[in-house]
Nucleic acid binder design. Structure first.
Lengths: 98, 98
DNA sequence: ACTTACCGTAAGTGATAGCTAACAAAGACC
DNA sequence: GGTCTTTGTTAGCTATCACTTACGGTAAGT
């Protein structure tokens, strides 16, 4: 969650949604250097959001389903809790002004 | 999205999921000072994630449904895109090794 | 074996962000 | 009116972070 706070990291993350990519391909089209992308990928990997596998000369990075599922579930729970809070708040207001 | 990158801000955000709260009540129980909470709330408000209304001496902060819905929709789209990518990747692998 | 391509890591730098302390403003209560 | 409470704002400091440059390592191609 903290890993997605940086805009550049989100850009990388969204880019990977279309499929696996090599580091150089990601850096191309981003306004930062390739080592910067490497460091961001390291952070995303430690956060469990991406996974990498070596293929020939390069390393292909892909999204990690488990990390995404984790965030997805987190926001689902949160969304429900917020809805309950709104509901009870609405009920209380209705009791105040009958 | 960037607003939820900070852990303290997420703590405030999760705290507000149980219902509206005043600034002092939020600061109580957090390891930061009250002005820090005020600044975080300002950021969250500018991000459209919380809304405030004055009640007597204090200001009650609540979650903004629109902001939450926005993030929820974002992750839903992202989740679907990622699933499509995984599906096509699996199909390609199956073609490679028949 | 040599070169080229691709990637990770270390060191260093500039900037941003979060925090505290101090002050100012507005309402409630005597 | 005076005091207390609650909150927003500012200045200043510190630490963290994102970035670039430079280097080393590995695999493919000649």
């Amino acid at each position: 969650m903290t890993a997605l706070g940086d805009p550049t990291r989100r850009a990388i993350f969204e880019r990977l949604a279309d499929g696996p990519m090599a580091v150089g391909a990601i850096a191309l089209g981003l306004p930062v250097s390739r080592p910067a992308v490497s460091q961001h990928l390291k952070v995303l990997k430690q956060a469990g959001l991406v996974s990498d596998r070596p293929v020939a000369n390069r390393r292909l990075y892909s999204l990690d389903p488990r990390g995404i599922e984790e965030i997805h579930a987190y926001f689902d729970r949160f969304w429900n809790r917020a809805l309950r809070a709104f509901k009870t708040a609405a009920e209380q207001r209705q009791e105040e002004t009958p």
